[in-house]
Amino acid sequence: MPIKDRTGSSTPLRVREAAQAVAIQALTWLAQDMERVGGFLAQSGLGPGDLRARAAEPAFGAAVLGYLLSDESLLVAFADDAKLRPQDVVHAHDVLNPPFDPDAPARRRF
């Protein structure tokens, strides 16, 4: 049985931290362009003032990466700028948004 880290996940902490770093990089990339961040805010229902407060929530990184995954052109542009492969972004999203586990503690989802 895998040892669970303090987040309640069986994913190693270093992997979760790397995935969270990709999500922060993606949010920064989105915020550099008003059209890109505007699309994310519109889809998520958040306001500009909510970004800073919500960025600390565990599910927020998954929401940011999920937004990129919903638009292939955004995904490819971000991956290219970040010097990542699109599948690296997919993997980071999967780490931050694992499949439902009925035994895991409840998490807030966006």
Score class of each variant (00 low, 15 high):
Gly38Pro: 04
Arg54Glu: 15
Leu68Pro: 06
Phe60Trp: 04
Leu46Lys: 13
Ala59Tyr: 15
Arg54Thr: 14
Leu41Ser: 03
Pro58His: 08
Phe40Asp: 00
Gly38Arg: 03
Gln43Gly: 07
Gly38Phe: 02
Ala53Val: 10
Gly47Glu: 12
Ala53His: 11
Gly49Ala: 09
Glu57Thr: 09
Pro48Ala: 11
Glu35Lys: 09
Ala77Cys: 05
Gly49Asp: 10
Ala59Gly: 13
Leu74His: 13
Glu72Pro: 02
Gly39Glu: 04
Arg36Phe: 04
Leu65Thr: 07
Ser44Tyr: 08
Arg36Val: 03
Val37Ser: 09
Arg36Ile: 03
Leu68Asp: 07
Pro58Trp: 07
Gly61His: 08
Ala42Ser: 12
Val76Pro: 04
Glu35Ala: 11
Tyr67Gly: 00
Gly47Leu: 10
Phe40His: 01
Ala56Cys: 02
Gly61Arg: 05
Gln43Pro: 00
Asp50Met: 11
Pro48Cys: 14
Ala42Lys: 11
Gly45Trp: 05
Val76Ser: 09
Leu75Met: 12
Gly39Phe: 07
Gln43Thr: 14
Glu57His: 09
Val37Asp: 01
Arg36Asn: 05
Pro58Cys: 01
Ala63Phe: 00
Val76Tyr: 14
Leu41His: 06
Ala55Thr: 14
Val64Thr: 09
Phe60Val: 04
Gly66Ile: 01
Arg54Gly: 00
Pro48Val: 13
Arg54His: 10
Ala63Leu: 15
Leu75Cys: 13
Asp50Arg: 09
Leu75Trp: 12
Leu75Pro: 08
Gly66Glu: 09
Ser44Phe: 08
Gly66Met: 05
Asp50Phe: 09
Leu65Pro: 02
Gly38Ile: 02
Pro48His: 12
Pro48Asp: 12
Gly39Arg: 12
Pro48Met: 11
Ala59His: 13
Leu69Arg: 15
Glu35Asp: 14
Gln43Val: 10
Arg52Cys: 01
Leu46Trp: 11
Ser44Asp: 06
Gly39Gln: 07
Arg54Asp: 07
Leu65Trp: 06
Glu57Trp: 05
Val37Met: 10
Ala56His: 14
Gly61Gln: 06
Glu72Gly: 03
Pro58Phe: 01
Ala55Asp: 12
Leu46Asp: 08
Glu35Ser: 10
Ala77Trp: 00
Gly39Val: 07
Ala42Gly: 12
Gly38His: 05
Leu75Asp: 06
Val64Phe: 02
Leu68Trp: 07
Gly66Cys: 08
Gly66Tyr: 07
Leu46Ala: 12
Arg52Asn: 11
Tyr67Cys: 01
Phe40Thr: 00
Leu41Gly: 02
Glu72Gln: 14
Glu57Ile: 05
Pro48Phe: 13
Gly66Ser: 07
Arg36Cys: 05
Ala62Ser: 15
Leu65Glu: 03
Val64Leu: 05
Gly38Leu: 06
Ala62Cys: 09
Leu75His: 10
Asp71Tyr: 11
Gly49Glu: 13
Ala77Gly: 08
Glu72Lys: 13
Gly39Trp: 03
Pro48Thr: 11
Leu68Phe: 08
Pro58Lys: 03
Leu46Met: 14
Glu72Ala: 13
Leu46Pro: 00
Ala42Glu: 12
Val76Ala: 15
Phe40Pro: 01
Gly61Asn: 10
Gly45Lys: 08
Gly49Arg: 10
Leu65Cys: 06
Gly61Tyr: 04
